[in-house]
Design a binder for these strands. Structure first.
Length: 467
RNA sequence: GGCCUCGUCGUCUAGCCUGGUCUAGGACAUCGCCCUUUCACGGCGGUAACACGGGUUCGAAUCCCGUCGAGGCUGCCA
């Protein structure tokens, strides 16, 4: 047995990269890197009908975006000859056989079993008859499973412990449509063997497939790798995470302005907890802390709020130049009008206010003139006329001393506040005039960012409401 | 239906293996207070959980059994 750690992820390119795959990939990656092993990416595209090139590209792009770089890459459609060799070997030795039952026959059988409350399985009488489909006849290749023996399949799952299945409940399950068309169970087993995979770390949905894989390994004389089944990521209702409760593809998260480091951090803590109670951990820290033995057993609901919080933490932590760059790139990618220079200017006032980059949409007034309702200018408990009075004074101050010296401007506005009876009476209408919103950063800072000219224009425009 | 897995605050979890230190700890969310021109940030504080029932034991979140609940698989998909 090869003692080098080699792990793999085996996505099928039948949809956009799901967050569950990203998590599985991440745990495999952690384990590989922690143990100086290899991380293999294998595209499982044996289903020609459903596999699409665009999804393969999506897998590659998003895995890279997350920083999960693989050491080796394979594509099952390039490996047909290898599977064929093993399938023929099984056929020749009688460990596999052609089943020529029609789909209708099989359907009837399983219906009968369901009503009779039996285990659903197909014990095929074509076994050992050495049949072959005639031209035009359809059939499938099945593994010959001994359904009489009391043959328990026992394996050890590193997170779940000893797991026992009864092999006679499996029936003669299918492994290939033809020697050139392996089915999932066959191709995984062959590839994991050929690629010398030491640990199979995959989602819990594969737990029930494991005995089938072990049976194929036995038939082929392969060693069994170590198995680790990860707890599922769940929707709010505890079903397997799916579309319709929110974003589930990595691409969607990316498009909403989540940072890869936040996604990695969040995913790394879903189903795993390092020692200590830290929650904000870098990729390297997570890798260093990783141990298969600490993986959880129970599924975990995907908590979008906590991801948002973490993403906000990463945004706040970033140095301003770096943040400005990423925000600008994001905005450009989303077709939001800005400019590299103006994005740099707004960093100080949005960095603590964004949880995801797409939240920048709430700050559109930094880039264009706001629209708002006249009554918004009214400060609580006061007559709207007082707002206009204050704005007229603000206008004078801004025209006279500009907006660049913030502490001076703030001092003057504070002085004005004392004269007319309260800061709110000055700052509230000023804020509304230049942002059109009831909540925003300090209007003095906003004024500086948009500049004297625009500040004056906006205050004047607000004053027009008076007429 | 059959097989398999799982079950600590609303959510993610610590603790469980090696019973007492658990009047169950942390984080997100939520609520309240402080800061304050609004929002955000920040600071402080609160509410909130061992699924249930038996057993073992001086003592159980921790060990055993059962019940209930949830999920996964049950494809000529992966």
């Amino acid at each position: 047995m090869n003692s080098k750690v080699r792990v793999r992820i085996a996505p099928s390119p039948t949809g956009f990269v799901h967050i569950g795959l990203a998590r599985t990939a991440l745990f495999n990656y952690f384990f590989a890197k922690k143990n100086k092993g290899d991380f293999v990416l294998r595209i499982e595209d044996t289903d020609k009908e459903r596999s699409k090139k665009e999804f393969e590209e999506d897998i590659i792009n998003n895995l890279k975006w997350l920083g999960l770089n693989w050491d080796e890459f394979y594509r099952q459609s390039d490996r047909v000859d290898i599977y064929k060799k093993y399938i023929e070997q099984l056929l020749k030795s009688g460990k596999a056989f052609w089943c020529l039952h029609t789909e209708e026959e099989l359907e009837q059988e399983s219906e009968r079993q369901y009503t009779a409350k039996e285990a659903p399985r197909h014990i095929c009488e074509h076994k050992r008859k050495n049949l072959k489909p005639e031209s035009g006849q359809s059939g499938v290749i099945r593994l010959a499973v001994d359904s009489n023996a009391d043959n328990a399949i026992i394996f050890n799952d590193i997170v779940r412990g000893k797991i026992k299945f009864d092999s006679k409940l499996l029936g003669d399950f299918s492994i290939a449509k033809s020697p050139e068309e392996p089915l999932y169970h066959m191709s995984v087993v062959v590839d994991d063997y050929e690629m010398k995979i030491s640990h199979v770390i995959r989602g819990e949905e594969h737990l029930a497939n494991t005995p089938k894989h072990i049976l194929i390994q036995e038939a082929l004389g392969f060693d069994t790798p170590a198995y680790v089944h990860l707890p599922l990521i769940l929707n709010k209702d505890r079903s397997k995470l799916s579309k319709r409760h929110g974003a589930v593809s990595v691409g969607e998260f990316r498009g909403q302005g989540y940072l890869p480091e936040a996604i990695i951090n969040y995913l790394g803590l879903l189903g795993f907890t390092p020692k200590g109670d830290r929650e904000v951990l870098s990729f390297a820290e997570l890798t260093g802390e990783f141990e298969l033995e600490r993986i959880h057993k129970a599924g975990a609901i995907f908590d979008y709020q906590k991801l948002d919080w973490l993403n906000g933490e990463y945004i706040k932590k970033m140095n301003p130049q770096n943040f400005a760059e990423r925000l600008f790139d994001f905005m450009e990618g989303q077709g939001i009008e800005s400019g590299r220079k103006s994005v740099e200017n707004i960093v100080s006032l949005v960095q603590t206010r964004l949880r995801k980059l797409s939240d920048i949409k709430d700050f559109d007034y930094l880039f264009k003139e706001p629209e708002f309702d006249k009554n918004l200018l009214k400060w609580k408990g006061e007559d709207i006329g007082k707002s206009f009075d204050a704005l007229r004074e603000v206008l004078v101050i801004v025209e006279k001393s500009g907006v660049d010296d913030m502490s001076r401007l703030r001092d003057m506005l504070n002085g004005l506040s004392e004269n007319i009876g309260g800061k709110g009476l000055v700052f509230w209408p000023f804020r509304v005039a230049i942002t059109g919103k009831e909540s925003s950063p300090d209007p003095v800072e906003v004024a500086k960012v948009i500049g004297k000219e625009k500040t004056i224009a906006r205050v004047k425009k607000a004053l027009n409401f008076e007429k």
